[in-house]
């Protein structure tokens, strides 16, 4: 697999820290695009702000680096104006579910035909390790030095409940699954989400020792603590403490926004 054909080589090496999982997710996205044979001209990759937000700068597509949390809003306009584009949003946990939470759930509700890859490192990396909506309860960050009093969002369940067509979650260790899920996500008509737990050794790993301090330790932590969704169904809440539940949360064929709007257009001409 030649990744270089999809990269803006003069922008490399990328900005992400050593051991950061974001590059692993980006590679999976590029492998999937390669597998599907999509033309670069027909791909738009859109991000918000944060570590994940830097992704578009490195890839040779139509790329858009928007304001914080708003990538899905921009993507909505772009997809409707040019439906032939494959619109991929890459976003982080804070970008997608804190400042951009409203856009995320509403795009899922209207089942807009875009692909959203959530780089969930469970912390604000770019600004130096503040807690995010997915930082687990009582874990540390630079703004929760005594532990996080909040509960974490389950992004995949949120997307499922809001009406997405396809939702799957994996980790940066499980790259084969990631490829499989991203491919299904890209091929799905409607709002489709892959949430990937990513490793942030610089901030999360440094402050929360149980995951290990280095990227590779965090990858192995993910390997050891991953529980498939099928198995999780038979486990108690206590047993699931600290576990990373992965798998396909939803995969359904329901009309997407464009399909419904085409009926609106027909009705307008009656």
């Amino acid at each position: 697999m030649d990744y270089l054909q999809y990269l803006r080589k003069d922008k490399m090496p990328h900005i992400w820290c050593d051991g950061c999982g974001h590059g692993i997710i980006l590679k999976s996205i590029l492998r999937t695009i390669d597998t599907l044979g999509w033309e670069k001209d027909n791909i738009a990759l859109i991000s918000g702000i944060g570590c994940s937000g830097r992704t578009p700068g490195y890839v040779d597509f139509n790329t858009l680096h928007t304001t914080h949390g708003r990538a899905i809003a921009f993507a909505t306009g772009l997809k409707l104006a040019n439906p032939k584009l494959h619109v991929i949003v890459v976003t982080g946990d804070g970008d997608a579910t804190a400042i951009g939470g409203n856009h995320f759930i509403h795009a899922a509700r209207r089942n807009l035909d875009i692909n959203v890859i959530v780089f969930n490192n469970r912390i604000y990396g770019m600004t130096g390790g503040q807690c995010s909506p997915t930082t687990p309860t009582l874990k540390k960050s630079t703004t929760t030095p005594y532990g996080n009093p909040d509960s974490a969002f389950d992004i995949s369940r949120l997307a499922e409940a809001a009406g997405a067509s396809y939702v799957a979650r994996t980790t940066t260790f499980h790259v084969a699954k990631m490829d499989q899920y991203i491919k299904a996500c890209f091929l799905k008509k409607g709002f489709s989400v892959v949430e990937a737990y990513s490793n942030c050794p610089t901030s999360y790993g440094k402050m929360n020792k149980e995951t290990g301090r280095r990227g590779v330790d965090m990858l192995l932590y993910q390997k050891d603590n991953m529980v498939p969704i099928e198995k999780a169904k038979d486990m108690s809440d206590e047993e699931l403490q600290g576990k990373l539940v992965t798998g396909v949360f939803v995969d359904r064929n329901i009309p997407d926004y464009t399909e419904n709007y085409s009926i609106v257009k027909q009705n307008s001409k009656k």
Binding site: T67, R70, F74, A75, T76, G77, L80, N82, L85
Partner: peptide, 10 residues
Amino acid sequence: GAIIGASLGG
């Protein structure tokens, strides 16, 4: 945000 995206789409 949506109108900016739409404008970029032509």
